[in-house]
């Protein structure tokens, strides 16, 4: 048997990281749109911003369960979240949408099709997110791979303000190693699968940047109410 590798996290067995991340994966949240309010772009954007804010709270709680993340300094935890938060939001929408065709599951009770995207003025953004859905659908990404690549996206979010670069590098190595070991155990038929999954990150980064830009312009217009955490992270970008 290949020599079991241990990690600097006290000898966590490689598949242990995947199972910890599966357990840490938060449940979906609900939009609970008000049926008495007539549909409009403002209503749709208000729902999306409210969902984003609540999902951000969930994602911050999730990040604290990534093996190795709590070992980082608080300042570095904040830096990674300030730079990677939109990628995490987008990835969760993408994963929820894998089972559908040309629709985005922003929440179990808030699924956007092309018409609704046009009405909300987010057609371009949603089409960009749908590109990611198509990419992951084509490679039949599994939940185990999804939870690891989401943690990698956060650890690899290229913040300009990291204080302990070596500690962040160790976190990236742990997560990268977990993905590689998962693939070598589960997908012997495709020795390049781990690389293929990591090669989706540039498109994720680009799509998240488009989302940030779009919501920053909405924020500038001042017509859509946004909660403090979402506003604060938009400004951090």
């Amino acid at each position: 048997l290949p020599q079991k590798r241990t990690f600097p996290l006290g000898g966590l067995v490689e598949n242990k990281v995947v199972s910890l991340l599966l357990v840490a994966e938060p449940e979906s949240i609900f939009a609970m749109p008000d049926p008495t309010v007539p549909d409009s772009d403002i209503k749709a954007l208000t729902i999306l911003c409210d969902l984003a804010d609540r999902e951000l709270v969930v994602n911050i709680g999730w990040a604290k369960h990534i093996p190795g993340f709590p070992s980082l300094s608080l300042a570095d935890q904040m830096s990674l979240l300030q730079s990677g938060w939109m990628e995490i939001l987008v990835l969760r929408v993408v994963f929820r949408s894998l089972a559908l065709e040309d629709k985005l599951v922003y929440a179990e009770d808030y699924i956007m099709d092309e018409e609704q995207s046009k009405l909300a003025g987010v057609l371009d953004l949603n089409n960009a997110i749908l590109q990611l859905v198509k990419k992951y659908k084509a490679m039949r990404i599994e939940k185990e791979e999804f939870v690891v690549v989401k943690a990698i996206a956060l650890a690899n979010s290229d913040s300009m303000q990291i204080e302990d670069v070596e500690a962040v590098q160790r976190l990236q190595d742990v997560l990268h190693g977990a993905l590689q070991d998962y693939e070598s155990a589960q997908h012997t038929e495709d020795p390049r699968r781990a690389g293929k999954i990591i090669m989706t990150l540039p498109l994720l980064r680009q799509t998240a940047a488009r989302a940030v830009q779009h919501f920053c312009s909405i924020k500038q217009e001042g017509r859509v109410p946004m909660h403090k955490l979402f506003l604060e992270l938009l400004e951090a970008k």
């Binding site: 709270v57 604290k64 608080l74 904040m78 830096s79 955490l229 604060e232 951090a236």
Partner: peptide
């Protein structure tokens, strides 16, 4: 300017810090 001025100024993120330091049951 002195070296620390050349460091990127970290943006205040009180909300992020609040949730990052909250215990899980508060988050949930």
């Amino acid at each position: 300017g002195c070296p620390q001025q050349s460091r990127l100024v970290r943006r205040p993120c009180t909300e992020l810090l609040k949730y990052l330091t909250a215990t899980d049951d508060i988050l949930l």
